[in-house]
Design a binder for these strands. Structure first.
Lengths: 325, 325
DNA sequence: TTGTACGCGTTATCAC
DNA sequence: GTGATAACGCGTACAA
């Protein structure tokens, strides 16, 4: 690895002169400057990030942490982050929860966007500070150095279910995700509020549990089919489970939406292909926003108000939509 | 940021004693050791990666570089890499082409897996060395420090097209990707070899060009529909384009596979849902393998034989398969 | 215009 | 059993 020192020796000058040239200081003779730059090219010198960071104590780099490689729409979030970061001459490094702390606690990165639910709150609280702001996705904290960007699950779910009721649906089933997640709670709350406000009784036996994975939706559908009577419509807490359920229904000759209608949440790639009615989360945009807020906070602003991002219902053929839209 | 120095001061010992404790050296008294460890907890000391790396000149971290956030199956590759890396107590950082060099030229990482086609060969050649091995995906070089893992595109494409011929298909169309990519060349070569070996004339007017994106497939299909006569089957160089084409055909009331059959390559998530016949690339496995070879080479082995990974035809309903499989 | 000295956080060597 | 010191690559204040 050729360093500043090697260039200095080759040029017959001191280390600091080389450093001055490289950092655009004006206190260097034109001829030595030329000579040094030439040598840097010839010897293919490349500044060492470690030395620079260690010395300066800062870095124009932010960290993105996620681990769930099964959710392909996360790539949209990354793209949003990446685009903003690039436009603002920052660098981006992505890592998983396991090595995340290592890159936060050091000056290698100067802020982080956290998506991984496995990342513990107390770890984040121990790190977030004036000089190390954090932005979390899908997680709310009251830490004064952590900005939260969360999806408004309630409103679009409420709107969607209300329209289903308006359209004549009465016998609902609900397929929930992990019960402790805020996502799932909000989605279910909106669902049950609509039913309540419309004086529709929802029987607990029509609440089914899954874990957000396709397979759990598939299993849940199998169980549903064992019941005496199919619900008219199955509202699912996310797309993956809805798709699993659709597969199970189809395999058993149950027609969607005639025999049972179904809805999801997320608008993942598959949702469109399978004509699943769902709620579209603007993933690119929330990645972009997360990066923007983070970098602004890194630069000294202090904006930590939770930001609620809105999502939109996408009506497709997995429900009977005579009057809808 | 609390460092080793702060601990030393608080404990009333020297820096080296603290360092010795933290590194498990045995030349420290039991009582001071206890006291220091206690203080580390209380003051929530966390070792600084940068200092360590600067000093040691090494790091158990590898880099993964990619930029195409539109291909969701890349997440499978990442998962493969991540799993192997974790099992072997290495860390993984992921970055885009823009900041990639920064993390390769410094001892922050000790090897890299390169997927991004935008990464220039000469940059890689300038970096790959005894102490910095590289593994490339979908790219072959003759650098003695770069191991290539490439998908065998030819064989499965040959097999697929041959079976199509055996099944009676004669009037073929081909929708190619970027013409300079090795992928596309290999896939097309297999395609045209089959036709030639079966004495089927392929007219150049039936070669259509795309850029691997869905949209380009959609456009190409529009153009195809302008022709006098639809091909019996459209072989596409990847799934995204095939899916775009399918959408265009369907929008125009053209039935698949009755009016036109279609095949893809990649077996992306959507391919299954859309019942697209395609070639499945074992993405998880090639990520895993890439990490394995890289880490072995980092550890001193020198294995740079190009590795060809095989892919498998997935027959689905986008082609008429009476006799097939 | 150029060079010297120092420090960033850590580890290794060697003296005490 | 403990501490002083040099070194890693770089930037910077200050001296020459």
């Amino acid at each position: 690895m050729v360093g500043i020192k090697d260039i200095a020796k080759a040029a017959g000058v001191s280390i600091s002169t080389v450093s001055n040239v490289l950092n655009g200081k004006k206190n260097v003779g034109e001829d030595t400057k030329e000579r040094i730059l030439q040598l840097c090219k010839e010897m293919s010198y490349y500044p060492n990030t470690i030395g620079k960071t260690l010395k300066s104590g800062t870095s124009d780099t932010i960290l993105f942490n996620f681990s769930d490689f099964d959710r392909s729409f996360y790539l949209r979030i990354i793209k949003g982050i990446s685009d903003y970061v690039n436009d603002n001459d920052f660098d981006l490094i992505i890592c998983t929860e396991k090595s995340c702390e290592k890159y936060m606690r050091s000056n290698l990165t100067s802020g982080a966007i956290i998506l991984d639910a496995k990342m513990k709150d107390n770890v984040l609280n121990g790190i977030a500070s004036e000089r190390y702001p954090i932005v979390t996705l899908d997680r709310i904290t009251d830490n004064p150095y952590i900005k939260s960007i969360v999806v408004n699950n309630y409103d679009p779910m409420y709107e969607m279910v209300q329209q289903l009721v308006d359209n004549g649906y009465r016998r609902f089933g609900f397929l929930g995700g992990p019960e402790h997640t805020a996502d799932n709670q909000e989605r279910y709350k909106a669902f049950s509020d609509v039913l309540e406000n419309n004086n529709i009784v929802f029987q607990r036996k029509n609440y089914f549990s899954g874990d957000y994975r396709e397979k759990s939706g598939y299993s849940a559908a199998k169980i549903i089919m064992l019941g005496e009577e199919l619900p008219e419509i199955l509202v699912c807490a996310n797309d993956n489970m809805a798709i699993g359920a659709m597969k199970a229904f189809r395999e058993n000759g149950i027609k969607i939406p005639e025999d049972i209608a179904i809805t999801g949440f997320d608008n993942c790639d598959l949702a469109e292909a399978m004509e699943l009615t769902t709620v579209a989360i603007p993933n690119y945009e929330r990645g972009f926003l997360a990066a923007r807020y983070l970098i602004e906070n890194v630069k000294g602003r202090r904006n930590v108000e939770p930001f609620r991002i809105s999502a939109k219902v996408k009506w497709r053929n997995s429900v009977l939509v005579s009057k809808i839209k």
